[in-house]
Nucleic acid binder design. Sequence first.
DNA 1: ACAAAAGTGTTATGCATACACCCATGC
DNA 2: GCATGGGTGTATGCATAACACTTTTGT
Lengths: 233, 233
Amino acid sequence: MSAETEQHLVLAVSTVIFSLRPDPETGELTLWLPLVRRIREPFKNRWALPGGPLDNAHDLAEAANNTMQHTTQVQPRHLEQLYAFGDVDRSPEAPERVVSIVYWALVGQDEDLQVVDAENVEWHPVEEIPGPLAFDHDLIVRYAVDRLRAKVTYSPIAHAFLPEEFSLADLRRVYEAILNRALDPSNFRRQILSQGTVQDTGRRMTGTAHRPPKLYRSAPQSSRYALTIEENP
Amino acid sequence: MSAETEQHLVLAVSTVIFSLRPDPETGELTLWLPLVRRIREPFKNRWALPGGPLDNAHDLAEAANNTMQHTTQVQPRHLEQLYAFGDVDRSPEAPERVVSIVYWALVGQDEDLQVVDAENVEWHPVEEIPGPLAFDHDLIVRYAVDRLRAKVTYSPIAHAFLPEEFSLADLRRVYEAILNRALDPSNFRRQILSQGTVQDTGRRMTGTAHRPPKLYRSAPQSSRYALTIEENP
DNA sequence: ACAAAAGTGTTATGCATACACCCATGC
DNA sequence: GCATGGGTGTATGCATAACACTTTTGT
């Protein structure tokens, strides 16, 4: 009656890891994510999300965290379950049925940039994914981007992309990169300040070309749950 | 390297099934859900969510659907993935690690009331769950209720509780039952009508004690996805 | 002085809320 | 007629958006 004898399936955990990097051409900040080139069948040589079979010793989120370590050598600033994908025919070329529990994560701008990528890992802008990806990973990436865009509008996760202290213009550029549209600086300022999600450090950024902006830090969260459960409309 | 030899875990699908029923004392419409009394260890004799191990031949949502059939003999009007629960220690008394992918579902008021429950199945008001439930099912129920309450405010899922044609007062009572608070009838009316989620049938309800209300039906949806991915703030 | 970004103030608009009021039906 | 729920109209407050304007720095 156990899974070993009856289910014949693999439970895997994959993670969509987001980072902000400047576009190599325009220089504008955009969303990027790491993909791993598969070295085995099925989908050999295709790009895929980082991940692997669930180790029995780890929680689901731990597994996602470990995947991040192996792929990017950095800790996520935000980690959240996205969805469980398990249709019978989602990996027709695989020898066994694969059920994937997918997480998405944010890594900070500062940490991320000075890190050497692992073997077979390459970062790509989310708008230029070298598809088709392995399995149903194109679909998963789309879901993850949508979730991120939806969540940034009502949750202070954007802070996860920034260092400890930041200006409101920094924060606004993060929002603009995620949402892919310009935001009015003055209204953005008011919105953020009225939310109470940032605290004035009392200090200002030095060495700027013009008027030095105030520095803020993100305010401690008052989350209702230890876990986070999320959605896309 | 396969899951059978290394993972030693069971992948289960459980479903939180919601229905609206009048409170036996006050007569007010409230949220109910069915629980199954466990007849085996672990957690023998405790109440648990309906569900079971994932059959290899079925998609995840299909498995949730089948669970509903066995438990309530009716089709869900709405079925949506809630979350995957898979911490290593979430079922310490079980012989193997269990990862549960949990769905939640809505069944209509009309269908539901005339149905005989299966063996060991009993419906309970969500505010009077006979806890503690088996495994971490108390937590899961809380998440599901929160998700339902959040989603009803920005999505027309409440229609799923009603028959084909209904008055706006019927719909309002559904909202009030889910949210557990009174809503202003006139503002509720305007909100619903402005959303365009209901269509006037041109007919009126007959046999009412007072002025006969107009009858509406729910408008066809324009959903962005075949699948639904959701969240709790 | 000037350019550029930081930061403030003002107004218009739309939406949610509260609530006064009229309508239509059974009794 | 009258009680009751169905249904309409209207004023108020609040959040958002648009944008004019002032402030502060480096060059």
